[in-house]
């Protein structure tokens, strides 16, 4: 029983990390019709920002950790803003291949920059005592860091849904997903929403970076790559452009991955998730929550 609970929670916390990346990619794709390959690198950047902050602050404390998370989130958003303005914006009318190349290029450049400054080796993430602890749920011992990651993803999901449903910017984003040209025709500067959505995705990825650094207790210049691959898998399983789909698919992917790794053998999880992707693509090509048209 306790193994079952622990595996579930561990799976959900991995899924939460996938969602922190997938949510941004989902909204960006929905509105901008761009698949951003740069967002994995934002996870890496966030992780390094968190580690740098923790290291500079000296003895790890909870307050220091909070600052590290804030720094990672902010850096993710800032870098995303720069990428959108300088690289992605000129590519909106150029089609998917150009966007793919430009965002991949941005990712490679960021990884190379990090490596040239921080070196290719693992950098350790100092953690405050409070995060090393565990709590007891249903007889299972659950690390606080896992619970925190899951809570972060739930809060982000709720926040994004509220943003889309209740704010004017959210309304513009939903309308823009439907028909961006017509939004312009009402006198609205859609390109501002494009930036906003890119930055939101960057903030979430940066936050994901901090939490990924907690999860693996370290960062490498390629940290974000794995997460990016899984985030895309989750997007497709959930249905491209569907935020709810990404949320559910991330949880499913994380959990079955953990179970397969534990009960079958280490590494089997990756294969099982890929198998799930194939099954979904065969039986329901639009994804679990995808519609034939586009929507958020």
């Amino acid at each position: 029983m306790d193994t079952f609970v622990l595996l579930t929670v561990a799976g959900l916390s991995i899924g939460a990390l996938y969602y922190l990346l997938a949510s941004g990619l989902s909204i960006i794709f929905g509105l901008l019709d761009v698949l951003s390959f740069a967002h994995g690198a934002l996870v890496t950047v966030g992780a390094y920002a968190a580690i740098e902050t923790m290291t500079r602050l000296g003895t790890p404390s909870l307050l220091g950790f909070l600052l590290a998370v804030l720094a990672a989130t902010a850096v993710g958003g800032l870098v995303a803003y720069v990428i959108e303005r300088l690289l992605v914006r000129p590519m909106y009318s150029r089609g998917h291949l150009a966007q793919l190349l430009v965002t991949m290029g941005a990712a490679l450049i960021m990884a190379a920059l990090i490596e040239s400054v921080k070196g290719p080796d693992e950098v350790h993430m100092p953690l405050p005592k409070a995060l090393e602890k565990s709590i007891h749920i249903f007889g299972a011992v659950i690390p606080v860091s896992m619970a925190l990651t899951i809570l972060a993803a739930i809060a982000l999901h709720g926040g994004l849904l509220l943003f889309l449903a209740r704010t004017r910017h959210g309304l513009i984003v939903r309308a823009g997903v439907d028909n961006a040209d017509m939004v312009r025709g009402l006198g609205i500067d859609v390109s501002r929403s494009f930036s906003l959505v890119f930055v939101l995705g960057g903030l979430a990825a940066g936050l994901g970076g901090a939490l990924a650094a907690v999860y693996v207790r370290a960062a490498t210049p390629s940290l974000g790559d794995t997460y990016l691959v899984y985030a895309f898998i989750v997007l497709i399983i959930g249905g491209l452009g569907s935020l709810r789909g990404a949320f559910v698919a991330a949880a499913i992917a994380g959990v079955i991955q953990q179970f397969a790794n534990y009960y079958v053998k280490a590494g089997a999880g990756d294969i099982v998730v890929l198998a799930l992707l194939v099954v979904v693509l065969l039986l329901r090509p639009q994804g679990l929550f995808g519609r034939v048209g586009r929507s958020v």
Partner: peptide
């Protein structure tokens, strides 16, 4: 070109 997934009010 109405926004099909939005309500009339929206």
């Amino acid at each position: 070109d109405v926004f099909r997934s939005l309500t009339v009010e929206e």
